[in-house]
Structure formats: structure tokens, C-alpha cells
């Protein structure tokens, strides 16, 4: 069992859990993920490691409540425990001094981009953070990000904070600058990552995306997370989760992400009916 040391509500339906997991805390690096199972009947879901504290032996995850499992997870309180947590899985982000790096995140991806920004900064890069949220209340970790980037550009869909528009609008401007980024990293919902790749392709900017396909084991055994990258079948859990975004077949990935949609809806509906609107 893995004890929850801290819980925070970051925005409507986005929650943070700090979990006691000393082995993972010792090893996790930016870009890696973990897999957890809430309870005995639970499914295994992958979540990016948003932060870790080696002294406390803890890791932090941030998640959007979208289905039954993330709702169950969000209902857990400090002092309660998660049945299984395994990691760190996948390869860490390739961190080097590239010069100038633009780190783009949308929605809950902000939590994933934070350790990546920090690692790029520590490696000596000039880091430009570009962060998008639906509205002001969905934005979180602005302070934390500001501490690890040189420049932070924020957009909201409705203009309630920062610039009105999408991250791609700002990214295009950054790409147009006299000294554009040497590398772009994008983490967030699939349509956002795809849109980012379209922009950067126009400008010939190398772009790394962090994929989050359906997984079961996370150690290369089930093949559920396979994606087509540059025409090759790759297993995201052990060969990824980061790939060159210009090579990723996003259409296929989008389709593959939907393959249990009916069951996911059913599970959520039953869950909501059972807890009678109390959760």
C-alpha cells in the first residue's frame, strides 16, 4: 500500500496527490511516469510523475478526473492509501543544453511540463514556458513554473487570464522571433500536441511530444500502447513515452485511445449512480 501524504485541489476536477513511494522517488526523472491501481478491483492507469521528493520518499501526481478510476483516486484523502504504484516507467526526457527550449503544455499537462522545464533550466537552457488553460480557474502552478522558466506565456480559451486564444497562437509568435527555440517539447491533450506539431513543422522546429496511450502493464508486455512513429510500430511504455512529434501518427493514436470508450462511459455511469451524486 502506498500512503497519501498530501492532497490538493488545483482546479475544478484537477487534483494533486503526494504519495509515499520511496523507490520511485529515488529514481524518477523528468518525463517518466508511474502506473497505479487504486484498489483490488481497479484498473492500472499511467500517470506522469509531476515531482518527487527524495528526502520525503514521495512522488507527486496531478490528474484530471475524467473516468471512474480518476474519480476514485480523487476521492482518496490524506492518510488513505493507493493499493499499487509502480515506476518510474518509460524513458526520461532527453535533457541537454540545446540553447533555447520552448515547453508547451495544455490542461493537466502543466504538471508534466514542470519537471521538464526545471531539468532544461538546470542544464543551462533558456526556457520559454507556454501554458494554456480553458479558463483562469483551470490554471494552476503558475508560481512554480515561473520559478523554473525564463519567460512564461499564458493563454486561456476565454481570455479570463493571460492572452485569449490557444497555445499554438503564442507558439507561432515565438517561432517567428528572430531567435526561435532550438527545441520544442509539448505535453497535453492529443489535439493540442497535434496542433503544436503542425505549427512547428512549418518552422522546422524539432518537437518532442509525450504520449499517453492506453496501457496495462507499462513494461512492454501487452502491446496496448503501441503507436506508429515514422512508419514503425513502437511501444510507448518502454520505447517512449516521448517521440518526435512530426513522426507520430496522431490519427491512429486518437482512434486507439477511443477503443474502450463505451466501457469507460458505462463504468463512470455506474459509479455515479452508486455514489448517488455524493462524489
Amino acid at each position: 500500500m502506498f500512503r497519501i501524504l498530501k492532497k490538493e485541489v488545483l482546479s475544478p476536477s484537477v487534483k494533486l496527490l503526494e504519495i509515499e513511494a520511496p523507490r520511485i522517488a529515488q529514481k524518477a526523472r523528468a518525463g517518466q511516469f508511474l502506473i497505479l491501481r487504486v484498489n483490488k478491483q481497479g484498473e492500472r492507469i499511467p500517470l506522469t510523475v509531476a515531482d518527487c521528493n527524495r528526502e520525503r520518499g514521495s512522488v507527486t501526481i496531478v490528474f484530471l478526473e475524467v473516468g471512474k478510476t480518476t474519480r476514485l483516486l480523487g476521492n482518496l484523502e490524506q492518510g488513505e492509501a493507493i493499493r499499487d504504484v509502480v515506476g518510474p516507467l518509460g524513458n526520461p526526457t532527453e535533457i541537454e543544453n540545446f540553447g533555447r527550449v520552448a515547453c508547451v503544455a495544455g490542461g493537466v499537462g502543466v504538471a508534466c511540463i514542470y519537471p521538464i522545464c526545471r531539468a532544461f533550466k538546470e542544464a543551462g537552457n533558456e526556457v520559454i514556458g507556454i501554458v494554456g488553460a480553458r479558463t483562469k480557474e483551470f490554471l494552476f502552478w503558475e508560481d512554480r513554473l515561473r520559478a523554473v522558466v525564463d519567460e512564461l506565456l499564458i493563454t486561456t480559451d476565454d481570455g479570463s487570464y493571460g492572452r485569449q486564444g490557444f497555445v499554438t497562437d503564442v507558439l507561432r509568435e515565438v517561432a517567428e522571433r528572430s531567435s526561435p527555440p532550438d527545441r520544442v517539447v509539448a505535453v497535453g491533450p492529443l489535439p493540442m500536441m497535434r496542433a503544436v506539431c503542425r505549427v512547428t513543422k512549418d518552422y522546422g522546429l524539432k518537437t518532442i511530444v509525450s504520449l499517453n496511450p492506453i496501457m496495462v502493464d507499462g513494461i512492454g508486455m501487452c502491446g496496448a500502447c503501441r503507436v506508429t512513429v515514422a512508419g514503425q510500430t513502437r511501444v510507448a511504455c518502454v520505447e517512449g513515452p516521448e517521440f518526435d512529434g512530426h513522426d507520430v501518427d496522431f490519427d491512429e493514436l486518437a482512434q486507439r485511445l477511443r477503443r474502450y470508450q463505451d466501457q469507460e462511459r458505462e463504468a463512470l455511469a455506474r459509479f455515479e449512480a452508486e455514489c448517488d451524486g455524493r462524489c
Binding site: Q41, G42, E43, R44, K68, C222, T233, Q255, R259, Q263
Partner: peptide, 27 residues
């Protein structure tokens, strides 16, 4: 890689280890 094409390992892991044959009791 079309949806609906899967490895036997993945299929069996869902059913055996994760008990998917008892969905929705198991998630």
C-alpha cells in the same frame, strides 16, 4: 495497429490478471 487488433499477451493479461471478464465489477 488498428483498434480491434491486439496481442494475445495484452488480451490475456486483461482477462487473467486484471479480471476483465468480470467487468464492471472489476474496472
Amino acid at each position: 495497429n488498428l483498434p480491434g487488433v491486439q496481442s494475445a499477451n495484452g488480451f490475456l493479461t486483461r482477462v487473467n490478471l486484471m479480471r476483465a471478464y468480470r467487468f464492471p465489477e472489476y474496472d
